[in-house]
Each structure stands twice: as structure tokens, then as C-alpha cells.
Amino acid sequence: MDWPASIALAQSVPELPTGTDWSYEVKLDGHRMIMWRTDDGVRLQARSGRDVTAVWGDLAVAGHHLPAGTVLDGEAVITTEDGRIGFEAVQARAASSPARARRLASQRPAHYIAFDALQLPSGNVRPRPYSERRAALLNLLAGLPANTPIQAVSATTDRDTALTWYNTLHNKHGVEGIVAKRTTSPYRAGRTGAWLKIRHADTIEAAVVGFTGAARQPRALAIRLPDGRVALSQRLSTALATRIAPRLVPQSRRAYTQGGDAYTPVSGEVVVEVVAGTTRHAVVTVVRLR
């Protein structure tokens, strides 16, 4: 495999799919991470493709127990004193210098919750069905030391059990939602429909600063997030675009998000509600016009 690995992403859906060919995993609010066990050591890759080994040294040390040639997909998480998964602690670690990260690790060590295997010492396993990759992952992790911070994500093929997890583990443990994965699917980068997710999320108000597409039928909105970033929303439904279009007053210039996406800025004040849980990775879902 070539560095960096392209990762699979889950599509947001309003409810979990039904059927016998789905497996359901708890979705944790952590830091997406690819763990590479190379012949020379361990490298950790963020969702963006950056090398983040220096700030997750405790997980890199743990990764040395994996056999060389292993590449895993998972989530780095940190638990708080009350036993909940704390995204703020993960965010603080990810934004730290290596020296500060080591201090934070001594206070609150991280865990790596693995949910897929991309490569094993035998070779690339991404083309194999999820059910086979899951079994291989469990077999691999069973050989690690008992006190390892590398663990497999909880999963079930029973939809009712998954819904119980969704309804009961959010407040007590900070579980963010559930990801459903088609058991027959290979590991493919991007959003393919093989991974679907429902998540606990509230709506927040956000200002519209621009749009893409035509003013009379905008394709997506440029949204100013609470932390000041500007990000493009997911594609608007036809009905929502029709309601928003009359409120947009385009300016005669181009602007760009921090990620480099171009959009047409607008004048005036337009406010929409967005799903709060979709803003952390600057992938914004607009639900209504305010």
C-alpha cells in the first residue's frame, strides 16, 4: 500500500438499514486514524493524510506489538474522569506540540479503537468482504498483550441491539452514533453507500456567506461555522434550494473556503439551521432556512 491511504467514509442517513447483510458498529467521537505497522516502526495517519505519529506517541508504541505489514483503520479516543469519550481531550491532543502531547498522554492515555483492516502481513485485504476483514481483525487483535490500548470496536449483526446501543450509550459513554456496514462490501475509499451512519446531533444556526451553482438554484451553501471557518454544505435538496434562492444576493467576485473550494459570496444576512454533529469535519448538512 502507498502512503497515505485513501479512507472509506460513511453516508448520513435518518435511520439504520434493515436486512441480513448489515453489521452495526458503535460510532465513537474521536480522531480518525490509520495505523501503519511498517518494517521499521509505526506511522499514524490522520483523515487528512497528515503524519500525526509525533502527537500520538503512546499509540505508536502500542502499535509495535502488531506484526509488520499491518495497516488498520480506526479511531483514537480519550476517556474523561467520568468514563465518557471526550472529543475536547482528543482535539487538544491533536493540536498539541509533540512535547505537550507527551504530557497530555501521561495524564490521559489514548486508546485506538480499530474497526477495519486494510492490510495484513499476508497482503492487501481491502478487496475482501467486510465480514472477512472483521474476522481477520479480531483474530489479529486477539494476539496482542492483554493491557493493549488497541481494541476492536463493538459490533453486532442484530439491528435491535444496535438501536439499544444508540439509545442508551450516548449520555453515559459519549457514543456518537451507529455505523452500518454491508457485510459483503470491500473497503472502498470515499462515500460509496456501503457504510451508513446515524448520529446523535442537534441543530445550530449558522450564517450563509455564499453558494455554489446558480443563484436561482444553488447547489451548496458556503457556511460560516461557529469556530469561524467557512465550509461548503452538502448538496441541497431541490425543495430547500428553491426556498433559499430568493434570499441570496450574489456579489460579483469569487471567494474560497479554507479548504480551497470556490464559491460566490453573498450580501445581506441569511441564516440556516445545520446539523451540529456534521460541522466538526467541515462537512455541513443544512436542514432548514431560518
Score class of each variant (00 low, 15 high):
Asp51Asn: 10
Ala180Ile: 12
Leu118Trp: 02
Gly63Thr: 04
Asp82Leu: 01
Arg43Ala: 15
Gly277Ala: 12
Arg93Glu: 09
Asp160Lys: 14
Ala60Gly: 04
Leu137Arg: 02
Ser131Asp: 15
Tyr112Val: 09
Arg128Glu: 07
Trp36Gln: 02
Thr192Cys: 06
Glu15Phe: 14
Asp158Trp: 04
Pro127Trp: 12
Gly277Gln: 09
Asp58His: 02
Gln91Lys: 04
Pro98Asn: 05
Ser185Tyr: 15
Met1Phe: 01
Pro98Asp: 08
Leu72Thr: 00
Arg100Cys: 06
Ala207Arg: 15
Gln107Asp: 12
Gly190Ser: 06
Thr203Gln: 11
Val275Gly: 08
Ser154Trp: 13
Arg243Thr: 13
Tyr24Lys: 02
Thr157Val: 14
Gln11Glu: 15
His111Tyr: 14
Ala76Arg: 01
Leu141Ala: 11
Thr192Ser: 14
Val179Gln: 05
Ser96Gln: 08
Ala62Arg: 07
Met35Pro: 04
Thr238Phe: 11
Glu132Ile: 08
Ala276Gly: 15
Val271Trp: 12
Ala135Met: 05
Pro109Phe: 11
Arg290Trp: 12
Gly83Asn: 00
Ala95Thr: 07
Asp261Met: 04
Gly190Asn: 11
Gly260Asn: 03
Leu163Val: 10
Trp195Gln: 14
Ala95Ser: 09
Arg108Asp: 12
Arg50Thr: 11
Ser48Thr: 10
Arg37Trp: 10
Ala206Gly: 02
Ala262Val: 05
Ala54Met: 07
Ile223Tyr: 08
Ala76Trp: 09
Gln91Thr: 08
Thr184Ala: 13
Ile150Asn: 05
Asn124His: 09
Gln251Tyr: 06
Gln45Thr: 09
Ile113Pro: 09
Thr161Gly: 11
Asp51Phe: 13
Thr161Ile: 08
Met33Phe: 08
His173Met: 10
Pro121Gly: 06
Leu137Gln: 07
Ser233His: 03
Asp160Ser: 12
Ile85Gln: 01
Ala60Asp: 05
Val249Met: 07
Ala92Trp: 00
Gly83Pro: 00
Trp195Gly: 13
Leu120Thr: 00
Val284Lys: 03
Leu144Thr: 11
Thr148Ala: 10
Ser185Thr: 05
Ala5Tyr: 12
Ala46Tyr: 09
Val175Met: 05
